[in-house]
């Protein structure tokens, strides 16, 4: 993937949340889903945000992924504030610098595995030859070379999530945000996926932020944030930063 060069800046802040707050209106009631959250994801980090259902994990991830706007506070991407950016600029950041992995894989059903992986490169207007080469390489890396032509409905849950991971990484993003990536997988497949993410993080220095309520995911993190009732309740560092 040619991203090893990013590691020379390991530790540089990629994604930061400052006093991030999000309200939802339910009928006449205003619900605080996220309450003044501060968070920094640095280059090469593998962070797990852990918490029970309804704790605000997905809300935080949506805000960090720039697919939702905060009620208050700020998300900084590579040190630059994003709250005043128009939707067009946010879409640009998402396609160029953010990779997303969804709980339910969210593959486009009419496209093959390879085409699903190729899709983000079409959005970045990557030349055809380069697209094909990158898709081939990333599918090999996630172990799906032989299944490239299969449609999502012809793949197992684990294979689909591998396609989703390949799709998230194919644009060589600065950060990959994963929302409950193991929630729809059996434990053995979930373990394989987490090992894949961990390997990609270690090999390519890609920054990962994974939100989950699955305790089996926690051991893969260097850093674990616990979120409860919309607030970061604690932070645990489980490993030393690895040398670039």
């Amino acid at each position: 993937m040619g991203q090893g060069s990013f590691c020379y800046v390991k530790g540089t802040p990629v994604l930061e949340a400052r006093e991030l707050t999000k309200f939802y209106t339910l009928g006449k009631e205003k619900v605080r889903a996220l309450d003044r959250v501060d968070f920094t994801a640095r280059q090469g980090d593998f962070t797990v945000v852990n918490g029970p259902s309804g704790s605000g994990k997905s809300t935080l991830l949506n805000l960090l992924a720039l697919i939702d706007r905060p009620s208050a506070g700020e998300v900084l991407f590579e040190g630059k504030p994003t709250s005043t950016l128009p939707e067009r600029a946010l879409a640009h950041l998402r396609r160029e610098k953010i990779g997303l992995v969804f709980q339910t894989f969210n593959l486009i059903p009419v496209l093959s595995a390879a085409e699903n992986v190729e899709y983000p490169l079409l959005l970045t207007r990557t030349p055809r030859a380069e697209r094909r080469e990158r898709v081939r390489a990333i599918l090999a890396e996630v172990g799906l070379s032989d299944l490239a032509r299969r449609r999502p409905d012809e793949l197992s849950g684990g294979q689909r999530q591998r396609v989703a991971v390949a799709r998230a990484l194919v644009t060589q993003p600065r950060v990959v945000l994963a929302d409950e990536p193991t929630a729809n997988l059996d434990s053995a497949t979930g373990k394989q996926i987490m090992e894949l993410l961990q390997g990609l993080n270690r090999e390519h220095c890609v920054t990962f932020v994974v939100v989950t309520h699955d305790p089996a995911v926690v051991p893969y993190a260097e850093r674990v944030l616990t979120i409860r009732d919309g607030r970061i309740g604690g932070e645990e560092r489980r490993g030393e930063p690895r040398p670039a």
């Binding site: 879409a91 160029e96 486009i108």
Partner: peptide
């Protein structure tokens, strides 16, 4: 609709 959400999250514009 969900597919729309996915491609928009991946960075596709409204126009696309």
């Amino acid at each position: 609709t969900r597919e729309v959400g996915t491609v928009r999250a991946l960075g596709a514009s409204r126009g696309r």
